[in-house]
Design a protein around this nucleic acid. Structure first.
Length: 580
DNA sequence: GCCGTTTTCGGCCCGACTGTTTTCAGTCG
């Protein structure tokens, strides 16, 4: 069994134990064991085979034995028995707000209910209300949770909520009693998808601000309203929390609610090891019972100050995922993250020649407005019939058109001729090599036969990477966020092949793709992989997707020298010629 | 179940809010 499957089983065990009403620390041990494997940078197979799995932080003898059994045997009796003892429907109960492991177990033990449908009936009949620890409001809340499960359970694309978030932040800042306001949470960390939105405000007079927030147009339901926190649900399904604190506490609350949870746990452990207790309310002496922050807190006004207090350089929100950022920050060795102003142009864009909405001239004009030095064109190749892909003859005409454009001197933007060439089922390319080599660059992408086995797909893509004319690999997994899983493919092997052949892997910056995923980049760039942010634009408007790509590059610890788009035109030409 | 310069037991990150209680457990982030 491979690493990803084992991680899945450890997470499942944690959920099952929750439904068994197990000790919460034991549950946490399985969760942190799974996380330890997720952030493992060394080769998992090697570590298991050498019997070193128990040496990882968070994995002890018991988990090591279970992981080894899963790895070698492919199954684990402990897991099989545990799974068999849990009614599958109960797992769904946990998706209902307000129901955790203990309450689900209580309902199941007392009433024998195992399906959402039966739970609904029990709420309506008064059976839930009659249980110890439950009441009329609990039953009502469960009913509304069931009704809204579909709409509210959903996550949202970061890109699709950014305007909404900006409007709320501006609205908060415009309130006269607000001193500081910011979004926090996964949105601030620029995660590709976000669940709830979190807002933090500094003010001495929370009441009127809470009132404003809970009455924003589009609020459908107020799910909590207290002294420091309110929660609302909008008609569009988005849930948002507002927390209001004093100005002194703002930076601590902002850091805390930006997360991630893993990052916070590590920060708090670090604080404890230094003799302090860290919370959203400030820094306290570890052993002090009183809730009076230490004196040094008054000098901490920014997050940079906060990190400095704990001996760390500033950790940007994008890096706060609990993936080693704290130990690297301790050595002042964090990457210098890309800024969007550093982008000089982008590749992988479509025009009316295939399935784009705008012509080459229109796209170039937009690139001028963005202040770029160049723009690469990569329309589809002939196999993508649905997209009016180009055959060899049309490719040659396009090359002539682009050459004529560059010679005309009509624009400060240099146009590069490329193609998004289909990788056929067997890994060969869709166009004649003699034509491909006349282009400035080739993006190779999979657009068909998604259901191949992992082995076949991996070999197929690697064969394409090994083709002499391929410059970049397009959207390596083909995933569509919140809509479709990617095809089965061994990404580490693909990365190895790309590095060996000096082929660039793109960050497809279409907000629905963001593929290759940021979780692979940190290690890949350290090993020498080159990246390109490719908006996959099908219109002038889509060129702005490059900003979503910058988010992912930042989350992936990618620095300017590993990112093709930060080069000026001459540097691009050199890469296309010499791959360096 | 994990962990250890407070080390083989007894802690484990921390606090707000809700709904149920009459002082607190469960949930959530």
């Amino acid at each position: 069994m491979d690493k990803a499957q084992i991680i899945g089983i450890l997470k499942d065990i944690a959920v099952f134990l929750e439904l068994k009403g197990e000790n919460s620390f034991k549950i946490r041990a399985y969760q942190s064991g799974a996380r330890a494997l997720e952030r493992l940078e060394e080769n998992f197979d090697t570590i298991v085979q050498e019997g070193k799995i128990a040496s990882l932080q968070g994995i002890g003898q018991a988990l090591a034995l279970k992981i080894e059994t899963l790895y070698h045997e492919g199954h684990l009796p402990f897991y099989d028995n545990l799974k068999a003892s849990i009614a599958p429907g109960l797992i769904e109960f946990l998706e209902i707000p307000g129901l955790g492991g203990k309450k689900v177990k209580h309902i199941h033990d007392a009433l024998g209910i195992e399906t959402i449908e039966a739970l609904k009936v029990a709420c309506e009949s008064g059976a839930i209300e009659a249980l110890d620890g439950f009441g009329a409001k609990s039953a009502e809340k469960i009913l509304s949770g069931i009704a809204n499960r579909e709409a509210y359970g959903k996550r949202h694309l970061w890109w699709s909520v950014q305007g909404f978030v900006q409007d709320i932040v501006k609205g908060l800042e415009a309130q006269p009693l607000v001193k500081r306001a910011s979004v926090a949470g996964s949105f601030r960390r620029r995660l590709e998808t976000v669940g709830d939105l979190d807002f933090i405000v500094a003010s001495d007079t929370p009441g009127p601000i809470m009132d404003w927030f809970t009455q924003i147009e589009g609020v459908k339901e107020i799910t909590a309203k207290g002294e420091t926190k309110s929660s609302v649900r909008f008609e569009n399904g988005i849930q948002a929390d507002l927390r209001i604190v004093s100005e002194q506490v703002f930076v601590f609350a902002l850091h805390h609610f930006t997360g991630s949870k893993d990052h916070n746990v590590m920060m708090r452990q670090r604080a404890l090891s230094m003799g302090y207790r860290l919370s959203e309310w400030g820094i306290f002496d570890k052993d002090s019972e009183e809730n009076i922050p230490i004196d040094a807190v008054k000098d901490i006004e920014t997050e940079a100050d906060l990190f400095k207090f704990f001996g760390l350089e500033m950790i940007e929100p994008e890096l706060r995922e609990g993936l080693g950022e704290i130990s690297v920050a301790e050595n002042d060795a964090l990457p210098k993250l890309i800024e969007k102003q550093e982008i000089r142009g982008v590749f992988h864009n479509h025009t009316t020649l295939s399935d784009g909405m705008n012509t080459l001239d229109e796209m170039v004009q937009q690139a001028e407005l963005l202040g770029w030095s160049y723009l690469g064109f990569a329309d589809h190749s002939k196999s993508s019939v649905q997209a009016n892909g180009l055959n060899e003859e049309r490719v040659l005409r396009m090359i002539e058109q682009i050459e004529a454009f560059n010679q005309s001197g009509s624009s400060s933007v240099t146009a590069f001729s490329g193609i998004e060439c289909d990788i056929l089922k067997d890994g060969t390319l869709d166009l004649e090599e003699s034509v491909l080599e006349r282009l400035d660059y080739v993006v190779a992408s999979v657009h068909s036969s998604f259901s191949q086995s992992e082995e076949e797909m991996t070999q197929r893509v690697i064969r394409a990477i090994e083709s002499p004319s391929v410059t970049m690999l397009g959207h390596p997994t083909g995933r569509l966020l919140l809509r479709r899983e990617g095809y089965r493919i061994n990404i580490p092997k693909v990365i190895d092949a790309a590095i060996a052949n000096r082929v660039i892997i793109e960050i497809n910056a279409n907000p629905q793709r963001l593929d290759m995923d940021w979780r692979f980049w940190k290690q890949a760039v350290q090993r020498g992989l080159m990246c390109s942010i490719n908006p996959d634009a099908h219109s002038i408007k889509n060129l702005s997707y490059y900003e979503a790509g910058v988010n992912i590059a930042r989350k992936g610890w990618i620095e300017a020298d590993r990112l093709l788009n930060t080069r000026e035109t001459d540097g691009i030409k050199r890469w296309f010629r010499e791959r360096c």
